[in-house]
């Protein structure tokens, strides 16, 4: 087996599984939010802040954020290994993606829990 040092789980099979499990979490989160928007046509700040003040929603959102980070990493990694053949370019691209992903994650946590 050829292990690629930049792959998330050092194994394609593990990455494949991560991609699917996180996809299911993200799909559930997105469908929940879409359902919420559709069933609350005249959304007010009170409704919206009450929703995210709830611990269950915070847990669900944090789960979605973690899933997004892993899912996007595997996806961007796959794209970079397929289309970027130059080692330096690929490494820089992956580094940038990882950096952006980390910023997204911390930013999301910050919004969720505030100061």
């Amino acid at each position: 087996m050829v292990a690629n040092i930049t792959s998330l789980g050092r194994s394609g099979l593990y990455d494949w599984m991560v991609q699917r499990v996180t996809a299911v979490v993200l799909a559930a989160y997105i469908l929940f939010l879409l359902g919420y928007f559709i069933s609350t046509p005249d959304l007010t700040y009170a409704d919206w802040s009450e929703l995210f003040a709830c611990t269950a929603m915070k847990i669900f959102t944090l789960m979605a954020l973690i899933s997004l980070s892993a899912h996007a990493w595997v996806g961007m990694w796959t794209i970079s290994t397929d289309y970027l053949k130059n080692g330096v370019v690929r490494f820089l691209f992956q580094g940038t993606c990882g950096g952006i992903m980390f910023v997204y994650f911390v930013w999301g946590v910050q919004i969720l829990w505030g100061l």
């Binding site: 700040y45 996007a72 961007m76 997204y104 930013w107």
Partner: peptide, 18 residues
């Protein structure tokens, strides 16, 4: 997937403001 990776920035910004 690539578009969404970039789009997350807009979503998080809207999320923050809201």
């Amino acid at each position: 997937g690539l578009i969404l990776f970039v789009g997350v920035a807009f979503v998080l910004w809207a999320f923050q403001e809201s």
